[in-house]
């Protein structure tokens, strides 16, 4: 594994699979198709580290996060957190697990109850788990939390609609940290924010991790953001993990053609580099997950796909120490013959 210390992983995801039934109307569920949103995904998250999960819309990255939180029940596979399989827990046991696992949502407008004050919102985890002492003590800790996330503690009795998107996201973060959980799943926490605000929130998340020793599962579509915050990064495409390594190795020497295409598609804010660097522009759109391609799911858009790729799904194998890649033709960038093409 990329993590060279012999530390036990905080979270182990093993062969996680999630299928959604597609309602097919007349014939009912017996003939229903399935969307395979997440298919056989495995990874580990270590304490105090950030695991970045990156991919395009519809690749199943959020579904993965929701399955880990058990907001969705996985179809197959294990999610082992603190030695327990979250996927199999009963409601009561789940509550105990959820004390140590929190979620930060993408939409800062939909994730805060508009009928509750900031104080009520942030103290809700304490109330639910009956922690944080008396009412006065809870108010006290909420004020401190507000201070820690850079908001004015005096605003404890205000409502979410009085705050801007960035401030609301800070409130969501304060709520996630209320019980100092061991793991926080950040589901696109900055993608709804303006660039300058995005940087504020990223710094905040970074600082809080250092201060509290929390682990993050950081889900995002923006490769630069994921790179900035992550220790390890995994790339997802159409429900499969494609590549998985520590951030340096993944960004410096991507092996999977999809990772390479993704990286080269990110526009660099520097004209000289942007105009001259080697780029792979993928043709077409991702196929529908209702009927995913056989073999490697990426083969329909892959510039170097061969017959082999259409037949069999490539296994995840270690291409370098701690660097895993699921491709039959894994080679470091740039892959020859993958010229710029529309």
């Amino acid at each position: 594994m990329a993590n060279t210390t012999k530390e036990q992983p905080l979270l182990q995801v093993k062969h996680l699979t999630k299928e959604f039934p597609v309602e097919s109307g007349v014939f009912g569920s017996r003939f229903a198709k399935h969307v395979s949103a997440v298919d056989d995904v495995s990874f580990n998250i270590y304490p105090r580290k950030t695991f970045g999960l990156v991919g395009e819309s519809g690749c199943g990255k959020s579904t993965t996060g929701r399955c880990i939180m058990r907001l969705l029940r996985p179809t197959k596979g294990e999610v082992i957190f603190d030695g327990q399989d979250v996927a199999q827990l009963k409601k009561k046991e789940l509550k105990a697990v959820r004390r140590n696992m929190q979620y930060i949502f993408q939409d800062p407008y939909a994730s805060l109850n508009p009928r509750m004050t900031i104080g009520e919102i942030i103290s809700e985890p304490m109330v639910i788990h009956n922690e944080g002492g008396s009412r006065a003590e809870r108010i006290e800790s909420v004020k401190k939390l507000l201070d820690v996330v850079g908001l004015n503690p005096e605003h404890i009795n205000r409502y979410p609609h009085e705050f801007s998107g960035g401030q609301r996201q800070r409130i969501g973060i304060a709520r996630a940290f209320a019980l100092s959980p061991k793991l926080i799943i950040c589901d696109e926490p900055v993608s709804a924010l303006d660039v300058s605000i995005q940087a504020q929130v990223l710094n905040l998340l970074d600082g809080l991790q250092e201060a509290f020793g929390t682990a993050y599962l950081f889900i995002a579509h923006d490769l630069s953001v994921v790179q900035h915050i992550s220790d390890e990064v995994a790339v997802m495409y159409l429900g499969n993990l494609m590549e998985y390594s520590d951030w340096r190795s993944l960004y410096a020497e991507p092996y999977h053609p999809y990772t390479q295409a993704l990286l080269s598609a990110v526009p660099v804010p520097n004209p000289d580099i942007q105009k001259t660097r080697e780029r792979i522009i993928l043709a077409g759109d991702p196929p529908s997950p209702i009927n995913p391609p056989k073999g490697c799911r990426f083969h329909t858009r892959c510039p170097i796909a061969t017959e082999e790729c259409k037949k069999e799904r490539p296994p995840m194998k270690e291409v370098e120490a701690g660097h895993f890649c699921a491709c039959w033709h894994a080679k470091p960038f740039p892959i020859e013959g993958s010229s710029v093409e529309l």
């Binding site: 300058s196 995005q198 940087a199 710094n203 630069s224």
Partner: peptide
């Protein structure tokens, strides 16, 4: 300064507005 850079060696800190 707010844009995270693609770095391969050392992460550059963000300086938000």
């Amino acid at each position: 300064r707010s844009i995270p850079e693609q770095a391969t060696e050392e992460k550059k800190p963000l300086t938000p507005i």
